[in-house]
């Protein structure tokens, strides 16, 4: 069960991306956070205790949503627009 549900842009252009090696689909206009949390129920494990996390503020303040792109760049999911063909690694491993 995902964490976020869409109430707008349901019919917006689909954008394909890879999440921890798994093909997923978001919508044009998504942030990476929305794209991931509309298909998953967590974003990443916490740095020290590996507790599940999913961001908090959605406004670039809390820094709880950092994920890694395939080129090694680390980005904040809530302030990064989803782009076609992105490969995102969250450290969440083989998520269901």
């Amino acid at each position: 069960m995902p964490l976020l549900y869409r109430v707008a842009r349901q019919n917006e252009v689909p954008i394909r991306f890879m999440l921890n090696g798994r093909p997923c689909e978001g919508r044009r206009g998504d942030t990476l956070l929305s794209a991931i949390l509309t298909v998953e129920e967590q974003l990443r494990p916490s740095d020290f205790t590996q507790e599940p996390r999913a961001g908090f503020c959605q406004m670039s303040a809390c820094q709880d949503c950092w994920v890694t792109l395939q080129n090694g760049d680390r980005v904040r999911a809530c302030s990064t627009p989803l782009a076609d063909g992105m490969h995102v690694m969250t450290g969440a491993g083989e998520t269901a």
Binding site: V7, L43, Q58, M59
Partner: peptide, 18 residues
Amino acid sequence: PGVFSLGGSQIALKAQGC
């Protein structure tokens, strides 16, 4: 996961339609 700030809850709705 699923606990967001009030502001974050509002941003999801108004800016992301989620």
